[in-house]
Design a protein around this nucleic acid. Sequence first.
DNA 1: GTATAATCGAGACGGTACGTCGAGTCTTGTG
DNA 2: CACAAGACTCGACGTACCGTCTCGATTATAC
Lengths: 196, 196, 196, 196
Amino acid sequence: MITSPSSLRRSERSRRAILRASLDLCTERGYGRVTVEAIAARAGVSKKTIYRWWPSKGAVLLEAFADVLVDATPFVDTGDIGADLRAHVAGAVRVLSVPPFGPAYAGILSELHHDDTLARAVREQLVDPRVEEAVGRLRGAQDQGQIPPGANLPLAVEMLYGPVYYRHVLGKPVQDEETVAALVDHVLRALRAPGY
Amino acid sequence: MITSPSSLRRSERSRRAILRASLDLCTERGYGRVTVEAIAARAGVSKKTIYRWWPSKGAVLLEAFADVLVDATPFVDTGDIGADLRAHVAGAVRVLSVPPFGPAYAGILSELHHDDTLARAVREQLVDPRVEEAVGRLRGAQDQGQIPPGANLPLAVEMLYGPVYYRHVLGKPVQDEETVAALVDHVLRALRAPGY
Amino acid sequence: MITSPSSLRRSERSRRAILRASLDLCTERGYGRVTVEAIAARAGVSKKTIYRWWPSKGAVLLEAFADVLVDATPFVDTGDIGADLRAHVAGAVRVLSVPPFGPAYAGILSELHHDDTLARAVREQLVDPRVEEAVGRLRGAQDQGQIPPGANLPLAVEMLYGPVYYRHVLGKPVQDEETVAALVDHVLRALRAPGY
Amino acid sequence: MITSPSSLRRSERSRRAILRASLDLCTERGYGRVTVEAIAARAGVSKKTIYRWWPSKGAVLLEAFADVLVDATPFVDTGDIGADLRAHVAGAVRVLSVPPFGPAYAGILSELHHDDTLARAVREQLVDPRVEEAVGRLRGAQDQGQIPPGANLPLAVEMLYGPVYYRHVLGKPVQDEETVAALVDHVLRALRAPGY
DNA sequence: GTATAATCGAGACGGTACGTCGAGTCTTGTG
DNA sequence: CACAAGACTCGACGTACCGTCTCGATTATAC
């Protein structure tokens, strides 16, 4: 976690109340109206306690959000690379379409441009692991001959996630499975097309 | 425009000073530290004048940003769809890599999730026109037989812009022409691959 | 009047609308919430027109108020100095107890301490004439032997008006005729008591 | 006090700095040009702290003013009611003629007509105690036979304070001891004259 | 009867201050 | 010593009026 002041005296009770309150407030008012003061009041916690363990409200919500996303985007190898990619992306899309997670993540993303610490945390804890898993799965498919050698796998993953983020940020989130399927289909087609 | 009180009495002098000041401040301090107060002070203008014509600082910066982007992403038909798409996307990427436009646009995007008016303005003034032009150019290529009939052109455009936004939002903007070229190449390959 | 830019082209229509609007607003909202902008809007008049003819909102209300007060505090000589003083003071008290005049006058008084022009206008147009009339009437009574020679008549008048202002300013205005009568009675008794 | 959030955690340091700054600004600029912002800046205090403990700038200045006035108008019984009243009123007159207290009090009075809370505070903290003391002292003199039984003592006190307020509000403050002496003399004469 | 010049409505402008909000820090007293 | 409570400084918010300043569009004499 981003936390760190190293202490075992930390109150688990307070931590849970804070994460819970921040998600509740996000549901009720939307990310933009969540404030550290409101979280503290709702959780029955001192502002100081929040600042002691998290650097910003974005970090609080990131922690509250991360577990959910990790659970929702498992990565398995069924042998069918298309099915596996569809399941993976569909998991993310599904989480983002269930309040408060979609708005919360949009809110977190909105802080990245002025909060480098948070940006690094998001990349290291959320994005990179998922990208690497996806690249790894693609590489497995490549080894099995389902994808030509020399294919630009990182770019492929960006073509997969890119539209999801693009539409989420612009407020027209991807909602349906068909779009996910079409996306995966096109990416795989690009990789398999002649030209490498 | 987002503006509204519709008046011919509006001071062009003030308008220009405001747009200029907002871009300058964005360069000097970054989007997050630009405030309406600072814009007003820098432009030698009262806050009321800003609030009279724009609903938020995001709207001010959007207007300041829009002209530049429009100029930078022309759309021509050279007969070579690949070259045309590369030129178009590269124009956008180039603008976003020149301060203050990259940070400014990241900042604007960061406000969309809590400012629906601004979100609509961005879509209607910046995103949709560009997307439609790109779709139109692809349709032209389709008519000439360079792309199979039945190809999912809107999805293709999202696969083009998606990664650019994705990386811009995550703070790793696309900077080089090779990435743009590879992106366009993959998208076209997906469209042309058998399967439609 | 305080006015003056010397012109016969002045619109009587506007003048009346302004005075009317200012009294109406004073009734509805209280003096403190009357603003030049509101008067202009209510009267269907440009702010510039108000500023052309009056230096401040206090001056506008003074003009609206002055006529009323002058009519309400006539000064006659019935031969009975006590009755005359009672009638005079009671007239003022009566005006001040009818909205909007009481609050309006309290409001005007409240501006005197930071508006010397207005303070002079109030003294010269409202206070001094009334004081002088009262002193004159007392002097007449003195000539008739109802008051000893050498009595401090100006002080007597201040003892008459003083409590009225005192209570008006402190928000406990004199309302009843008995208080006025007692006041006049005591003042006359002071003047007639041995000691001069 | 007017204050209210009732706390022992209140910073005495800030409170003193605020009262001091408000009086200083009143001296330098006059009551009308004192603003909450200026008080905060001068006192090195945030506006929030001022608004936390006082409802308005008038309340701040009232508190700053009250101590001084209380000290300046002691009430003693020397056995000579005339001398005692003269000393009492002269004390108030003297305070009001020393900047910044005269202008400050005029300014406070000017807010009473649109600030009921402040009006009540002025009456309860400043005016009523002084009036009651004066009435009490007169009653003592009455008991000793210096004043006839049945005399209207509250009215007498208003005849004493009334002219002081009247002239203060109209910008011609009582300055000299002779006027005070004459005032007291007339009031006592009224009380002692036959007729009760 | 027209010039012609000031006044009119409307309302944008640069300002100053308002009173509120939230950030992040600091202090006090309790368990 | 972490905690809750909450006061503190700071800086920005968005609003309200101020008094000044163009703008045409009426007027209403003075030619």
